[in-house]
Structures are given as structure tokens and as C-alpha cells.
């Protein structure tokens, strides 16, 4: 039974959300990237973040796994909770946070070496001493990169196609078995055929993970997500079930954006 069935949906809404932000404001030096954003991500749901370029989509994703604080000059106010616990409390180890809330960047840098080296990096960082090959195989299978068998492990990452690279970066994150998957622009820089195949992969992962993704392509948000958040100039203007937001937006700016009339 899928987590998105009607029955569990109501139950999920009562339970503690897996991620929540309350009054989140993020600044980079003088520039304010997010202003007073409050949002809840229920467990098992797929949430899309849409909005014009520069509206703070990536910043919101990055604040969910404490990746903004590695940018010099950034500062943050507000509270983010992960399964009810303050993400920034002293007991939270940022490295552990990032293992449990995995993120695939739009600019997904390949690590030097083979595909296996790429997958093993995160596992070794965690101190994993078990069957690295087994874990890597499972992750590559989940990401749809195992069709040609084990030889993919020894392939140099730099020799992969754009689509395979994207899949490998997803596999790199999946290997750590995160609770939440953050994906920034899952299909940017891919040609249409590859984009639709990667989209199917995200669709397949919906059953196993809570997913939050940011996209410039709102039709993609419509195809993939249960809930959609509309960000505009760093403010969360609207958040709700994707169906409702697309067919009956409450905020006129949301409607302007969706219909391509935003000034």
C-alpha cells in the first residue's frame, strides 16, 4: 500500500512531519535569499518547489540538510525540525544530518575515479566496513544503472553520459539509505528523452522515500509531486496539494507564474 493512499494521508498529517521549517530566514551577506518561510514536509510525500529563477528554491533545499552554513557569510534565523528535533541543536551532528537527509545537487560534481569510488566515498566517510560492493550494487540498481552488470562499477565516472552521471549521483545518495531525498533540478541539462527517463526514476523512488525537489519546469512538478510549494522572491506564497494549486491557485501571483504572465 502506498503512503499516498487516502487513508494514510490523513494519518500522516496528524503525525509529526519529517521536516518542518518555521519562520526560516536565510541571508548571504547582505542579500536575503529566504524570508520567513514556514513549511511542513509530511513523511512519505513527494513535494515540489517551484518558482522563478532566483526565488530561493535551492536555498530552501539546502537549508534542510544544513548545507547553507558551509557558504561563507551565510546566516540563518528560524527553526528547522527533522522528525521533531531541532536540526541545529548541539546534539545534531551535521554530517549525520546530511547522511539521513541526502541531497543531489544540480551541479553534481563527479569525484575522480570509478563509479565504485564515487559510491564508496560516502559509505567510507560513515565508517562503513561491510560489503561496500553489495551496497553499491543495490544503490545502482535502484538508480537504474545496473543494466549492463557489474562492469559499471569499474567505469570511470568521467566516461559516463550526462544521464548516467545524474543517475550515479542519485545512486551515491541512495547508497546511504537516507530518510529524505532532496533533489535540485532533477532533469536540467538533459535532453528531452533522457529527462523523461530520469523523471520516471524519480517517480519510481516516490514509493520508498520522502522526496523534496526543486524545478523550473512546473509541468514536471505537476507530474511528480503530491504537494507543491510556490516560492517568489524568497517568500512562500502558496503551499498545498499539487492538484489544487495548479487548478485553483489562491494567490494571483501563483496563477500568473503558472500561466506564464508573471512580470
Amino acid at each position: 500500500m502506498s503512503a499516498r493512499d487516502e487513508g494514510t494521508r490523513t494519518a500522516g498529517a496528524e503525525a509529526v512531519p519529517v521536516l518542518s521549517a518555521e519562520g526560516l530566514t536565510v541571508r548571504f551577506g547582505e542579500r536575503t535569499a529566504l524570508t520567513d518561510v514556514s513549511i511542513e514536509i509530511p513523511r512519505g510525500y513527494t513535494v515540489s518547489i517551484i518558482g522563478p529563477a532566483g526565488s530561493g528554491k535551492t536555498t530552501l533545499l539546502r537549508s534542510f540538510n544544513r548545507m547553507n552554513e558551509v557558504i561563507p557569510g551565510s546566516s540563518q534565523a528560524g527553526t528547522i525540525r527533522f522528525a521533531g528535533r531541532n536540526l541545529h541543536s548541539a546534539a545534531m551532528d551535521p554530517a549525520e544530518v546530511r547522511r539521513r537527509i541526502g541531497m543531489v545537487f544540480e551541479d553534481a560534481a563527479l569525484f575522480p575515479g570509478s563509479v565504485f569510488d564515487n559510491l564508496a566515498f560516502g559509505l567510507r566517510a560513515r565508517g562503513e566496513e561491510g560489503d561496500l560492493h553489495g551496497i553499491a550494487e543495490a544503490a545502482l540498481q535502484a538508480a537504474g544503472l545496473w543494466s549492463e552488470g557489474a562492469e559499471i562499477l569499474e567505469t570511470r565516472a568521467g566516461d559516463l553520459s550526462a544521464e548516467e552521471r545524474r543517475r550515479m549521483c542519485i545512486a551515491r545518495t541512495l547508497a546511504l539509505k537516507p530518510d529524505v531525498l532532496l533533489v535540485d533540478e532533477p532533469t536540467s541539462t538533459l535532453d528531452p528523452a533522457a529527462a523523461s527517463r530520469v523523471e520516471s526514476l524519480i517517480h519510481a523512488l516516490r514509493d520508498d522515500y520522502t522526496i523534496v525537489f526543486a524545478t523550473c519546469d512546473h509541468t514536471q512538478a505537476g507530474r511528480l509531486s503530491d504537494l507543491t510549494a510556490y516560492l517568489d522572491s524568497g517568500r512562500l506564497l502558496e503551499y498545498g496539494p499539487t492538484q489544487t494549486l495548479f487548478t485553483n491557485p489562491r494567490n494571483p501571483r501563483t496563477e500568473f507564474y503558472l500561466t506564464g504572465r508573471l512580470q
Partner: peptide, 26 residues
């Protein structure tokens, strides 16, 4: 490139792990 550090950090590596395994090698 900064993205190499970000990707490595996002996989739960500590700062020294990122530096030793990725940045210094690059």
C-alpha cells in the same frame, strides 16, 4: 570547484574527509 566540496559534504563526510579524499587529490 566549490561544488566538489558541497557534493562530498552532502554525502555526510566531515571537513577533513572532504579535504583528504577529494580536495587534496584534485
Amino acid at each position: 570547484p566549490e561544488s566538489l566540496r558541497w557534493n562530498a559534504l552532502a554525502l555526510g563526510a566531515t571537513r577533513w574527509q572532504v579535504v583528504r579524499e577529494q580536495v587534496l587529490r584534485a
